[in-house]
């Protein structure tokens, strides 16, 4: 069977990445590493209502009014599960987007993220704007702007009625500049 030396090496290979993730946050999770997502956060439970925070995208339709964008079609072929981290840096158009990583929960992760931040040049931003414009056009929206809206909604359970809605953050990305 496996020798003691092999077992010790295996333990190091498994435990070091796990230690990095649990001590310094998801931002310092190495890849590849044998780990599954923890997702250990909790939310408040109320038998009658729940509070949810989510980000939606809006664009101007042909009549000039803001309409909700189909996120999966907008991102395609980028998988939809990457929506949240991409929205966090607003498609790379946000200030210092190269340093924005999800799960920065420690000073070390924050410092490393700043030190190893990817330089997003004006050319990169121009490319991102053109890409977004093309994607919006495919959904028959105007190519000029995209609005990122973070909403906190209180929803009635179980009928899903909206009891309360508050815009926590809103930013309009100009794509024609």
């Amino acid at each position: 069977m496996f020798s003691l030396r092999f077992t010790l090496v295996l333990l190091a290979v498994l435990l070091i990445p796990y230690f990095l993730r649990s001590k310094y946050g998801v931002a310092l999770e190495p890849y590849p590493a044998v780990m599954l997502p923890s997702g250990s956060g909790t939310v408040d439970v109320d038998p009658d209502k729940t509070k949810v925070k989510f980000t939606s995208l809006y664009a101007l339709n042909t009549e000039g009014t803001w309409s909700k964008v189909d996120n999966a079609r907008l991102l395609y072929p980028i998988p939809i599960q990457y929506l949240n981290p991409i929205l966090a840096k607003e498609f790379g158009l946000k200030e210092n987007a190269g340093a924005i990583r999800p799960g920065i929960q420690s000073e070390l992760a924050g410092n490393l993220s700043m030190a190893w931040a990817k330089q997003i040049t004006e050319q990169d931003k121009k490319e991102a704007r053109a890409w977004l414009g093309k994607k919006l056009k495919q959904q028959n929206f105007q190519e000029s702007s995209l609005k990122v809206v973070q909403t906190v909604k209180t929803i009635s359970i179980p009928d899903g009625r909206k009891l309360n809605s508050r815009v926590a953050y809103e930013n309009t990305l100009r794509l024609d500049q």
């Binding site: 890849y31 991409i86 990817k118 490319e127 991102a128 890409w131």
Partner: peptide, 24 residues
């Protein structure tokens, strides 16, 4: 191959991964 079509501005590799050795 689909990654090649993504804008470079979306490149934010994990800090501890092979991709972080690349600029884009």
């Amino acid at each position: 191959s689909w990654i090649a079509g993504a804008p470079q501005a979306l490149f934010t590799p994990p800090l501890l991964s092979l991709a972080n050795l690349f600029g884009g």
